[in-house]
């Protein structure tokens, strides 16, 4: 094995072009487990920790440009106002030690259907900035996941940053697991209200081969809210509407039975999370007109 230590982004791209099989290592919280257990023996390990811009973020007018290696702990401390859904999701990742190292770039690189950042990115709206010596691509996050632990990166590409829409309304994240810390999601759900476009977006994790958006549910809810004038009158969402939204979210799942849970349980739990998180976000929208959820901890479902 060879250990590559690019000192800059340009060097990293050149090294990846020269050694397409090189495995990038950022926080190492996925890669090192695979190496420690002999599940992976790459020819080259490429350390990204020296590439400064990957650890930086920038808050723009519409989006946050999040460097691929920014650890979860920084997202929680610094970006919970702009990216409340992602901050809530980050808070449920592993433990403090894992959150000090693990990153959204690594979560996308691993592309596990259970990765916690995915439902939050899908709900907020995000694009992955992938770069190689050949040039730059912006990949909508919903097109980034191509299969179980597979993503849209070409072999010479690296993730430079993730461009995430700043919250224009309340967002929530919910995750089912056996304890609060150190849990791979049995299933997870992210929701974002977008009052500016009068839309709602919902992301589902760990309930299909890839993270996915519940598009039929989003469309149904968007139309129901519009037709009832709910964005203006701020009335409580009727239970029948919330129920239908929940059922459509369940219907979007294509889960499997595994050690963490059965397919039937996952489908049901996604519906429950959809209904509850819709309730929380809508109440917060009603309370403030355009409330943003900025509290640090996930609410207990």
């Amino acid at each position: 094995m060879e250990f590559l230590r690019p000192a800059s982004w340009e060097e990293a791209l050149a090294a990846k072009a020269e050694h397409p099989s090189a495995v990038p290592i950022a926080g190492g919280t996925d890669v090192m487990v695979e190496i420690n257990f002999d599940h992976r023996r790459p020819t080259h390990l490429m350390d990204l920790n020296r590439v400064r811009e990957l650890h930086e973020w920038e808050v723009g007018d519409e989006t946050v440009r999040l460097g691929a290696s920014v650890p979860y702990s920084k997202i929680i401390d610094e970006l919970s106002a702009e990216l409340p859904g992602l901050a809530l999701a980050s808070h449920t990742v592993g433990s403090p030690q894992i959150r000090n190292r693990g990153s959204v770039g690594g979560n996308l690189g691993a592309a596990s259907p259970a990765g916690d950042s995915h439902p939050a990115l899908l709900a907020a709206g995000a694009e992955v900035e992938a770069e190689s010596v050949r040039g730059t691509r912006f990949i909508p996050v919903e097109d980034f996941y191509t299969g179980v632990k597979r993503n849209a990166l070409a072999e010479d590409e690296l993730i430079k940053s993730i461009h995430i829409k700043k919250a224009d309304g309340p967002q929530q994240f919910s995750k089912v697991g056996t304890r609060n810390a150190m849990v791979i999601a049995v299933c997870a759900f992210g929701i974002a209200l977008h009052p500016e476009t009068r839309t709602v977006r919902a992301g589902i994790g760990s309930a299909a081969p890839t993270p996915l958006r519940a598009r039929a549910a989003e469309d149904f809810l968007g139309a129901a809210l519009e037709d009832g004038g709910f964005w203006d009158n701020g009335r409580t969402i009727p239970p029948a509407v919330a129920r239908e939204f929940a059922e459509l979210c369940s219907g979007a799942c294509n889960p499997i039975d595994d050690v963490r849970g059965s397919a039937a349980y996952r489908r049901r739990a996604v519906g429950v999370m959809a209904r509850r998180t819709l309730g929380w976000t809508w109440e917060s929208y009603r309370a403030t007109g355009n409330g943003r959820t900025t509290e640090g901890g996930a609410q207990c479902a």
Partner: peptide
Amino acid sequence: CEQGECGSCTVRLDGEPVCACLVAAGQAE
């Protein structure tokens, strides 16, 4: 555990508590 689950390898790396089992030695350079 060598997989970040137990924290018995916790050290501070540039001040941050991390699992030493999940940091590649070369990253500590």
